[in-house]
Design a protein around this nucleic acid. Structure first.
Length: 297
DNA sequence: AAAGGGACCTGGCTGC
DNA sequence: TGCAGCCAGGTCCCTT
């Protein structure tokens, strides 16, 4: 499940492979892998890649007037290819003979050629970029927590004004991007906030704590190459990350809390699992459970 | 308008 | 042994 740290690891791995290279050929093996399937990836043919940029979980190849946006979804991978893989969805052939494969078992990921639009704040479009522009289709995605132009005070005020639960807002990529289910649970644990806590019942300081915790956990995950559970997330060379051993709550339901020893709880919320310590993250200022269908294991 | 919930997708795993 | 059903979750889209 690639979130910001995993995508950043892949972006770093892609840079020496694609920057300065020209796309000499390309092929789409599964039309689901490309948005705007009518034109496919053809606009990339002949383009020279100047940089690989990331905002949240999105990446793009900056190739002059055109970009190729990439989202890995649940299981997308870029691999230096040539080998056989039943989940190979598309590939680019570069002018040095390298074949860059896009592999995606669950097919939630996609590639897409796109044009640029200017960033409203005049800052570079994302990590790895020096130009103030972003692909049009992802202009609505918020800056991520590790972006130098990320404005935490604006985000904190936006979150406070919402009438909903904190975890739902953490996963809203238009407010702050890059956070997925794993790091949302980890950030809430570190900030000692229940996932279903209502944001308009939180102080500005507490909301800030949650976002600072999310930034901290992602920064530490980037440093060790992200989190790997299985072969679905690996970097461009096929190697795994090491952050799984640092997870405090995610996937630890029933095991003792590392702080207080209480059993970590797993609860279904937003059709996903939430993992939290019921003692460290008390259910204060949450909506009554009767308002929603709940299944607790 | 904002909020919330389901669909999409595949393969590994569980339990009968 | 075989197979049905569950589970993983990022994002889009529809309904309220």
């Amino acid at each position: 499940m690639p979130e910001l740290p995993e995508v950043e690891t892949i972006r770093i791995g892609l840079e020496p492979i694609v920057v300065g290279r020209t796309v000499t050929d390309l092929r789409v093996l599964n039309p689901r892998a490309v948005r705007r399937a009518s034109e496919g990836l053809e606009p990339l043919r002949g383009a020279t890649i100047d940089s690989v940029v990331r905002r949240g979980k999105y990446m793009w190849f900056d190739a002059g007037d055109i970009s190729m946006v990439a989202h890995l979804g649940m299981s997308g991978q870029f691999r230096v290819g040539g080998g056989q893989n039943p989940h190979l969805r598309a590939y680019l052939l570069l002018d040095d003979g390298v074949r860059l494969d896009f592999i995606d078992q669950r097919t939630f990921g996609h590639l897409m050629p796109d044009e640029f639009t200017k960033t409203p704040d005049g800052a570079p479009g994302g990590w790895g970029s020096t130009s103030p522009r972003v692909p049009r289709s992802i202009a609505h995605i918020g800056r991520d927590l590790l972006d130098p132009a990320f404005d935490i005070e604006t985000v904190v005020r936006t979150v406070k004004a919402k009438n909903t639960e904190i975890k739902r807002v953490l996963l809203d990529q238009s407010i702050a991007s890059g956070i997925g289910n794993i790091y949302a649970d980890e950030a809430l644990f570190l900030a000692r906030v229940h996932p279903r806590r209502l944001t308009n019942r939180m102080s500005l300081g507490k909301i800030r704590d949650v976002y600072l915790a999310a930034a901290d956990v992602m920064r530490r995950a980037v440093a060790v190459g992200g989190t790997s559970f299985d072969e679905l997330y690996v970097n461009v060379n096929g190697a795994s990350g090491y952050f799984e051993r640092s997870l405090n709550v995610y996937g630890r339901d029933g095991l003792p809390c590392v702080v207080c020893g209480a059993a970590i709880k797993r609860e279904i919320f937003m059709n996903r699992s939430s993992h939290f310590c019921p003692a460290c993250q008390r259910a204060r200022h949450v909506r009554p459970l009767t308002r929603r269908v709940q299944r607790v294991k």
